[in-house]
Design a protein around this nucleic acid. Sequence first.
RNA 1: GCGCCCAUAGCUCAGCCGGAUAGAGCGUCGGUUUCCUAAACCGAAGGUCGCAGGUUCGAGUCCUGCUGGGCGUGCCA
Length: 585
Amino acid sequence: MASARQLIEQRITAALDQVLEGQDAKRDPMLKQTQDPKFGDFQANCAMGLEKVLGTNPREIAQRIIDALEIDDVCDPPEIAGPGFINLRLSAAFVGKQLQKMLADDKLGAGNDGDTKRVVVDFSSPNLAKEMHVGHLRSTIIGDSICRTLEFVGHEVMRRNHVGDWGTQFGMLLEYVKRTQPQALDDPSSFRVNDLEQFYKDAHALFQSDEEFKTASRQSVVALQSGEPEMRTLWKAFCDESLRHCHEIYDRLGVKLVDMGESAYQPFLPGVVAELQEKALAEESDGAICVFVPGYTNRDGSPLPSIIQKSDGGFNYDTTDLAALRYRVDEENANHIIYITDRGQASHFDMMFKICRMANWVNDDIELNHIGFGVVLGKDGKRIRTKEGGSIKLADLLDTAVTKVKELLEDSARDFDPDKIDEIANVVGPASVKYADLSHSIESDYKFDWDKMVSFEGETGPYMIYAFARIAGIGRKAGVDFDSLSPETELILGHPTEITLAKSLLQFPDAIAQVANQLKPNAMTSYLYGLSRTFSTFYDKEHGVRVIDAEPESARQSRLQLCNLTRKVLRTGLSLLGIDVLEEM
RNA sequence: GCGCCCAUAGCUCAGCCGGAUAGAGCGUCGGUUUCCUAAACCGAAGGUCGCAGGUUCGAGUCCUGCUGGGCGUGCCA
């Protein structure tokens, strides 16, 4: 279904078509939400830009557009303001009808109407040699949210965990496995590491101090890469164990991922190199096979290569990523591939995308995106670290979140029983971390501030869940099962707070579209926070309306329905952020 | 050196394709509870949008230069 915004855009475009008949000019309504309600709900800014095309002043053009505009079923009569803004205010009748349609739609008006694409989203993707740490937080949270949004809209999403399960460091690790847990060779499933981080450190220490171990490690890499069965067994055991650790974290975060590591693309690497050489895109330089993408230079001003085969004959991540990209296009038929990594890898992906286009591996119908996010900083403005200078384990970070929320609940004026505190903290803890992350724009760095993200005040995860729980409480108190309310309930929008709330609800599809099209989850957080605030005012003793004891019954029903719709939108919106809600808190 | 990114209120951050007096939270100050969850709500103070030019009817947003930060920059990922 078309959102209010889309409807208005269509109508204005049609009017522009008439006004601009025969003229070669864009039919862009330039519709914006107004910043001030006195200008209505939307403003069309197109008239000002057409002054030169039509040779009259913008107010006159605005008038012509209005004359050609058929919109009385959606808006009150449009007004011209200032230099030529066309101000549009949704009519109360339209708002009510549109809301009923939204309520009856299981996508709440945000479906893609069958325009389904196959999207591969490459996110999280930790290195299996080590434990997941804070550096993986943003990719995992943002990636999951983007997947959820695209799935909700109706796309076919393939969530890819492109884990680092290959490379030279595995030689050292596998050699260490062989020495410390030799039974793993006979019974791979018995292989366990409680602390992957420590395991890596121990192996590394031995690698540094023991020449014999070092030599053996190097031989192990060779054995692994040549497919030697025992080494493959150990490798599999190690990867399985590491992935178990990862999925414990994913489970706690409610994130689903399909593991498909770098090793999966090994068979295709020589082909990638050979084909780029055949196409004369790759050439030998200093013993390595390189692709030089125009426009990239290194320190001394010489061309900067993407190295696809090292001088020792080995491959690196440029090669693997190219192979994976081809696989996703050729074998998995992706229409759109999205990579979610830190911003530091921007030029790597940029070069890689260009190489794929140059090689005609990816045609123009296929969209490639790299979403580069900013770093997580500590309170001091530097990269977040533990006191010892190491990176913070994700498992510890989530524990801390839950503990902090528990402490707040225990100190609260409200009296919770201990079981309830655990239940609430286990939902609110991760939610606070996610909300803090997603409410920042992706590309900027952000400061990780426990006190702020865990707080129940301000724009935080806890506040949002509380806002939801409050609405659920209204249903309980009123003795109404929201889910069984009739979608046909007539909505009576009389009080200003009812109208404001209703209009805010209508913006939900637009918020989703912003996330889905621009891949910006913070458009959803700011929308939801605004909606919660609007709801609070609607429900406020002093400034809002009565709900549970409203008279007459038709007003009560209408307001309960508004509560219900707000509840649905909040629940759905938060779910797209990967945040669970609580009926009570 | 080259490339990319950033600079908005005391602090943390938004700002949709350039659009009307630049928004929010926290903090500060003030107000609201015989009444549906006060973990709430309402209000006030607080800004030369880093600096200087330019394009435009109109610039926080686009272009150029400068200052101050960050990241990347040949065999790690």
